[in-house]
């Protein structure tokens, strides 16, 4: 269990991790750099879920905002000709933030299974719309061009993952993780613990539990959307099945639970483990990949309720 005291700002840790990734770039083989970048993208979505988990909430439809981010970026690129990754990211975040703000008025009163199910329904509605919209390529989706940054365009010989894109993803993920870290240490983060532990008491402390949930929901949505933008820019393609379908949302929940809610680093670590294991599993035991996921999830639920991060806590000897 996360207790109040092990939320502590890890500014130095985040800066160090980002610098290490950037410094390692020349040494990383292409697949490793790609895995790292994709893990940051997915990790952002799981980070959003982690915020919700700290509020005692689990969304089985976070693919909704992942898809909104991905599609917003892809659409802006395809139909408006925007290639700047910064602008595309802002577009994705703005789209998801607006929709989450509106939907938030419905979900902020829901808890437990009903919160999970309502979000599942939202994401399945978006999936249905995307899969039936011919202009967006229906179930096949459509492709996204190579992004630029502030006028810097990669040469024709460079692959999709340039240092510019890699650096952009690493630095923005680090910034976002730092912000979330601050938020979790602020009254907003503690209000989340209040919602999870005893909402009635929180209300009698003059805090709007619904308002706090609404805020967390919007934050989680923006994080998922940014993850969606990164993923689409890295993969170069977007489809409904790989973004909005409930199985994708299930994967994100898996990663968030695997990592645990103890530290902002946890979702990124868990997502990296997830990506690495998937790469090898799909190569050597493709028919047992989901089984592996399922067994891992069961083991985490039964024996490691604090997720991978609780191992770190245990090593540091402060999980009294």
């Amino acid at each position: 269990m996360t207790t109040l005291r092990n939320i502590r700002p890890t500014t130095a840790g985040i800066a160090l991790a980002a610098a290490a990734l950037l410094g390692l770039w020349p040494l990383l083989p292409a697949w490793a750099a790609h895995t790292a970048a994709v893990s940051l993208g997915g990790g952002l979505v799981a980070l959003g879920l982690m915020i919700l988990i700290r509020f005692g909430l689990v969304s089985f439809g976070q693919g909704l905002f992942f898809a909104i981010g991905g599609y917003a970026a892809a659409l802006a690129n395809q139909f408006l000709g925007i290639t700047d990754m910064l602008v595309l990211s802002v577009a994705g975040i703005a789209a998801a933030g607006t929709i989450a703000w509106a939907l938030g008025y419905i979900v902020r009163g829901h808890r437990g299974i009903f919160f999970a199910m309502l979000n599942l329904a939202f994401s399945m509605i978006l999936f249905g719309i995307l899969a039936k919209t011919v202009a967006l390529g229906s179930t096949d989706g459509f492709s996204v061009g190579v992004p630029t940054l502030l006028g810097v365009a990669p040469g024709p010989e460079a692959g999709r993952l340039t240092f510019v894109l890699f650096g952009f993803i690493v630095i923005s993920s680090a910034l976002v993780a730092w912000m979330v870290d601050r938020i979790l240490a602020s009254p907003v983060g503690y209000a989340g613990q209040g919602v999870r532990e005893n909402e009635l008491r929180l209300r009698y402390l003059g805090v709007s539990a619904r308002g706090a949930v609404h805020l967390a929901y919007i934050m989680a949505a923006k994080l998922a959307a940014l993850g969606g933008v990164f993923t689409v820019l890295l993969i170069g393609h977007v489809t409904p099945e790989d973004t909005a379908y409930w199985t994708k949302s299930g994967e994100f929940v898996f990663v968030a639970i695997l990592g645990g809610a103890g530290n902002v680093a946890a979702p990124f670590i868990a997502q990296t483990v997830f990506e690495l294991v998937r790469t090898f599993a799909l190569q050597y035991v493709p028919e047992a990949w989901q089984m592996l996921l399922g067994i891992t999830l069961l083991l985490v639920i039964l024996f490691l309720p604090g997720g991978l991060w609780s191992l770190v806590d245990r090593l540091r000897g402060r999980n009294a």
């Binding site: 602020s186 907003v188 613990q193 532990e197 003059g206 805090v207």
Partner: peptide, 24 residues
């Protein structure tokens, strides 16, 4: 707040009291 200690209960109560939209 059942999962927290007495001190943490009060810390949380004092720290969040009255924040309709808590600052982050």
């Amino acid at each position: 707040f059942p999962g927290l200690t007495v001190y943490e209960n009060l810390l949380l109560s004092v720290g969040v009291f009255g924040h309709r939209r808590p600052p982050w």
